[in-house]
Amino acid sequence: MSPTSLDELIDALRCLPGVGPKSAQRMAYHLLQRDQRGAERLSKALSHALRVLRHCARCNTFCEGEVCERCASSRRDSRLLCVVEMPVDLAMLEQTHAYQGLYYVLMGRLSPLDGIGPRELGLEKLIARASDGTVEEVILATNFTNEGEVTAHTIGELLRARGLKVSRIARGLPVGGELEHSDTGTIAQALLERRPTQEPSG
């Protein structure tokens, strides 16, 4: 192996988040010296994924066909559309088994100071998806960070203007949470967003 291809490999590994020159070098030596089969597998998996993966035409998450399995499923309630920032958020919501509707994955969030606006985030695609005539309610499940909040607000405004019902997931204390061990910001916000307790029916 000529040093140029080694350098090239080290340099290429640095595109991973959190990988600096030192870690990239360590990874390269490990792959070449100790785990050539692993390296082969990694290289194949990477080029295969790059070739076949694309964004689902309906929910925008990664999938292999035109439309992902979830969006194609008839068991899902297509009147509900839940908007999340990233595929990991979708996975968390799925783990709850509490939601039967469909999703839309933004693959990011608005971040005005970093220059990530509606165009960079491709909000037109979401608007088109939500106005397909079947969706009745859009649930905004972006993070409760400032960026997540500004994203939710923006999408909410845009979709409400198009006659859709828009809701936001609730924020407050975690299930089984104790006030004593919660952070002050959460408690303060939970107080501000308190709601009347339900009268027992009947």
């Binding site: 005005p112 400032n146 909040e149 500004v150 303060a188 916000q189």
Partner: peptide, 18 residues
């Protein structure tokens, strides 16, 4: 956290970024 202030939302949040 010093607190005592509701989180910014909506248009006010966009102004905050500005």
């Amino acid at each position: 956290w010093q607190g005592g202030q509701p989180l910014l939302t909506g248009r006010a949040l966009l102004c905050g970024y500005y």
